[in-house]
């Protein structure tokens, strides 16, 4: 009787299942490892040629063989963070409205439309940006800003339409549905007793949402924003069409700029020498690292907020 109970291979099905899931998990890890290995291998010629100077170099001249990645790194980080700075608050407020205030007949269609926004192909956003957004940005928005507040370096250069601001605007629009949908789901998952506790203390509905519901869901909301930031960092097509594609660092919002993803996409077909190809692969490696670092910072942030409470 005791021997039967302790016989280990009675759980053979369990072990097969466990082994199978382990294998699948390991495959994912192996794929990431392989990807990283290939990137490093491809980038090795560029790395050994330019070293750390590649990360800080600002010149990009394929003809003379001078390559620096800083403008693209700068453009990637700045465009993504600015996009999140716009889409984050707007998305959160929209989510609060959907989860706490919208009547049922409005909530359904509105949620559907927002999710629909997330399924629009990037190239369509790009086209819309080129033909609708850019002309409006150039005049009146950028021209007015330049004429009234042009003494600020941020708004000091010639309004072109195409440039950092256009890329930021389109990125904000593209990540908005992610921020909104995730935040809305997180807010909905907050137990009703939290809402009632705040209402019973004499809170208005807005105070209830802001002081009880949002704090309860905050780590999930920040997580959703990080997901959106990750998407903004890697977004290629729409940004390539709108950012102006000039590898320059400028404090001015209107000036043409570049991102890692759009530089790779734009120049891959032109990369005629092995070194040029290797340089672009190294840009890919840097993009990988930027994503990881931003994610790491975000996790640290969430973790600090959690451990403080």
């Amino acid at each position: 009787m005791i021997r039967q109970l302790s016989r280990p291979h009675r759980n053979r099905g369990d072990r097969i299942f466990q082994g199978w899931t382990w294998l699948m998990a390991a495959t994912v890890l192996a794929l990431i490892g392989l990807l990283l290995y290939e990137l490093v291998l491809g980038a090795l010629p560029a790395i050994s040629r330019f070293g750390f100077g590649f990360l800080t170099g600002q010149t990009w001249n394929p003809v003379s063989g001078q390559f620096g990645a800083l403008p693209a790194i700068y453009g990637t980080v700045v465009s993504s963070l600015l996009a999140l700075a716009i889409a984050g608050p707007v998305g959160l407020l929209a989510a609060i409205y959907l989860a706490e205030f919208a009547p049922p007949w409005l909530d359904g269609p509105l949620s559907f439309l927002i999710e629909l926004l997330a399924t629009i192909p990037s190239v369509v956003f790009g086209l819309w940006g080129l033909y609708v957004l850019v002309p409006v940005l150039r005049s009146p928005i950028e021209t007015t800003l330049h004429n009234t507040l042009g003494f600020l370096p941020l708004l000091g250069c010639t309004p072109l339409g195409l440039g950092m601001l256009a890329a930021v605007a389109i990125l904000a629009l593209m990540i908005l549905p992610y921020v909104t949908a995730v935040a809305r789901d997180m807010l909905r998952a907050v137990p009703d007793d939290q809402r009632e506790a705040m209402l019973a203390l004499g809170a208005t509905r807005w105070e209830m949402a802001w002081k009880a519901v949002v704090p309860y869901a905050r780590s999930g909301i920040v997580g959703g924003m990080m997901l959106a930031l990750g998407r903004a960092v890697g977004e290629t097509m729409a940004v390539t069409m709108l950012i102006g594609n000039r590898p320059e660092i400028s404090a001015c919002l209107f000036s043409p700029s570049y991102t890692l993803a759009s530089q790779i996409a734009n120049e891959f077909t032109e990369a005629t020498t092995d070194m040029y190809v290797s340089v672009l692969i190294e840009l890919g490696l840097i993009l990988f690292a930027v994503t990881l670092i931003l994610n790491g910072i975000a996790r640290l942030l969430v973790w600090r907020v959690r451990s403080k409470s």
Binding site: P191, D193, Q194, E196, A197, M198, A200, A212, P215, Y216, R218, S309
Partner: peptide, 11 residues
């Protein structure tokens, strides 16, 4: 309320 419902993010 029936279930204790302190605000978990507050001290």
């Amino acid at each position: 309320f029936q279930r204790p419902n302190p605000f978990p993010t507050m001290s």
